[in-house]
Computed example of a mutant assay.
Amino acid sequence: MYEPIVSTLLNGVPSLAPGWQVSFLQVPFSFGNTSREFIEAVHNLTENDLFIWVAKLGHEHIPWTWLSEHQVHTVYFSVDPRDSESPCEVVGNNNIKEVWDYSLYNIKTCRDHRLKYNRNNLPVFRYLPPGAIESSAVADHQQPAHLAFMGHVKFGSRLKCWGFLKSRLGPHLVNLNGVWTPSAFEALVKGNGIHLNLHKRCDPIEPRPLETFRLSTLLSAQALIISERADVADEEPYAGLVTFATVRGIQEEFDVLANMSKWARRELSRARAANFQRRFAPGRLLQNAGIGQLLAKLARHR
């Protein structure tokens, strides 16, 4: 699930700071207990090392206080959508120095709710969407075309929007679940070249953050994507890479792609994928977020 951002960090940091050693641990949590390997790795960190925790799960078990006391630079990478009802709760933790996020809308929401946090200074926020990743999967474009959604349609208000689209697109709209392995994903995109992105709370009154993890995986596999509209700031970096439409406009955008020959769709998908590779190269994303400067600053004081 988090592979796109982990890959972005593992590939991006060495390209910016070759002297840094990057380690990745996938930590199993069982009844609140962390693994011994993880605890040992944390306690081997020293002053001006960088610690990044990805995702909400298990963050309450991280020894943030110990890390802060030992001058380790702490980062929480948020992977959850934010709105007016679910602000960024980790901002209230004074031992977290920075919050990195995949969505500009999420960052704005966290900043707008700063009065809810009992904290004198907010952490540094950085926008870091998942970048282009290596993918053995390559989307194929068949005739007739189908619009595929990867994941569950019953989350949030998504089912209502799915029902509306199904009534318009009929058998051309397909839902595929259980895509948890590289081989399953490869089979998915091989049979479906056009993919749909819907928010869990679809067709909302207020803007929604864009699901950039999904976009990274699909664009890296040369898939065409039609996405429900998101916050304008989140859409802008993906201009020309993703087709954005309201729920009621998705059928029209699908018809445009479906009426193209499979060869034309294949050329369009390759062009978008190549553009994505350039614009979302991991090192470039980290540099744009100011992480290169951060690493250089930490290195000078080690």
Score class of each variant (00 low, 15 high):
257 L>F: 09
295 L>N: 03
47 E>K: 15
193 G>E: 04
248 R>P: 00
283 G>Y: 05
292 G>Q: 11
25 L>I: 15
57 L>I: 14
266 R>W: 06
159 L>W: 10
36 R>Q: 11
80 D>M: 12
115 L>S: 14
233 A>T: 10
131 G>C: 03
6 V>L: 15
257 L>I: 12
6 V>C: 06
231 D>Q: 03
143 Q>L: 11
146 H>A: 08
236 E>L: 12
290 G>P: 05
25 L>F: 12
97 K>M: 14
302 R>P: 00
32 G>D: 07
32 G>I: 08
237 P>R: 08
120 N>C: 02
264 A>K: 15
31 F>C: 04
43 H>N: 13
193 G>A: 04
232 V>N: 03
64 W>A: 01
89 E>Y: 07
280 F>A: 01
71 Q>N: 13
78 S>F: 03
191 G>T: 12
222 Q>R: 15
238 Y>K: 05
82 R>T: 11
70 H>D: 01
54 V>S: 00
114 R>I: 06
101 D>N: 14
121 N>C: 06
170 G>E: 12
49 D>L: 08
119 R>S: 01
65 T>C: 03
287 Q>H: 09
116 K>H: 07
109 T>P: 00
182 P>E: 07
57 L>V: 14
144 P>H: 05
35 S>L: 04
150 M>P: 00
2 Y>T: 12
63 P>S: 08
134 E>L: 10
28 P>N: 04
180 W>Q: 09
151 G>K: 07
176 L>Q: 11
156 G>S: 08
299 A>P: 00
67 L>T: 13
280 F>I: 12
98 E>N: 02
276 F>C: 03
209 P>V: 07
262 K>E: 10
49 D>M: 05
112 D>I: 02
64 W>C: 05
287 Q>D: 11
36 R>S: 08
213 F>H: 09
179 V>A: 02
194 I>K: 03
215 L>M: 12
230 A>M: 10
39 I>L: 15
34 T>F: 05
51 F>E: 02
25 L>E: 05
69 E>N: 14
266 R>I: 03
204 P>R: 10
292 G>F: 07
119 R>K: 15
219 L>I: 08
164 F>H: 07
87 P>C: 04
238 Y>W: 12
15 S>H: 04
238 Y>T: 05
42 V>A: 09
249 G>L: 11
138 V>W: 00
161 C>P: 00
201 R>T: 14
133 I>D: 01
21 Q>R: 13
64 W>M: 09
284 R>F: 00
108 K>A: 12
200 K>T: 10
200 K>A: 13
137 A>W: 08
221 A>F: 06
207 P>A: 05
264 A>T: 11
42 V>Q: 02
246 T>P: 01
86 S>Y: 11
168 R>P: 01
